[in-house]
Write a protein that binds this DNA or RNA. Structure first.
Lengths: 112, 112
DNA sequence: TATGTATATAAGCAATTAATTATATAATAA
DNA sequence: TTATTATATAATTAATTGCTTATATACATA
């Protein structure tokens, strides 16, 4: 089992210790998402969402990829913290329902 | 696998998202500890240590037990979050070295 | 080209955090 | 009893957080 430093792990846990970011990670485990989808799901301002994503990106937990006018965020499955992330997300309810709701509202972006 | 709510899990992660508290939990996984041992290990003021322990106690992650003039803290292995805690602590280095250091300094309290 | 949409960033602000110092309480020892 | 030790709590403070609003940029489309 890969052991990470206390400092690094604490930093990651601190980031995931926020309901919005934790749920974002749960969503990204199922599906890549763009910023505007998160805005609809969390009913939160676009800058607030962008700032949460920035924090996740800064520690390497997610990656971004431009697709037309959208920016698609994905889980970074290469980070040394990915197995920790998986273990943690295993303990929260499946976030699929939020994606289903998004589709039902006709808000799912299809940029693939 | 027991799933806990996003809110509850985020709260726990937020608490463990602090280097001192995360290390405390790693230590308690090996050994019960009293406040003054934590003070020596973390070289932090006694009130600061007490306040960290208070937070862990408030969410039920640890329990306390008075033994003479000492207050001994233990991991609460009954909480529904214990398996999450175990999974997380599995990802950090063994905290045993801190206990060994404590013993070498002659600071280990023997209140058993 | 002008307009609208998606996103990022900056500035500001209220709430929270993590420490400190000072003080109180409880148990032990002289 | 008095002093010492272990701990908790309160008040204070500086730093951080998580939002807001305002603005800038980039792309898409009419």
């Amino acid at each position: 089992m890969g052991k990470e430093s206390i400092e690094g792990t604490a930093k990651i846990l601190n980031l995931l210790g926020n309901e919005t970011r934790l749920s974002m990670m749960g969503l990204l485990l199922i599906n890549d998402c763009c910023v505007c989808e998160f805005v609809d799901i969390f009913k939160m301002s676009q800058p607030a969402i962008s700032q949460h994503l920035r924090k996740l990106k800064d520690v390497g937990l997610v990656t971004e990829q431009k697709k037309g006018q959208w920016v698609i965020y994905s889980l970074n499955r290469e980070t040394t913290y990915f197995s920790l992330i998986q273990d943690i997300l295993n303990h929260i309810p499946d976030q699929k329902e939020k994606l289903i709701w998004l589709e039902q509202q006709g808000l799912k972006i299809s940029c693939n």
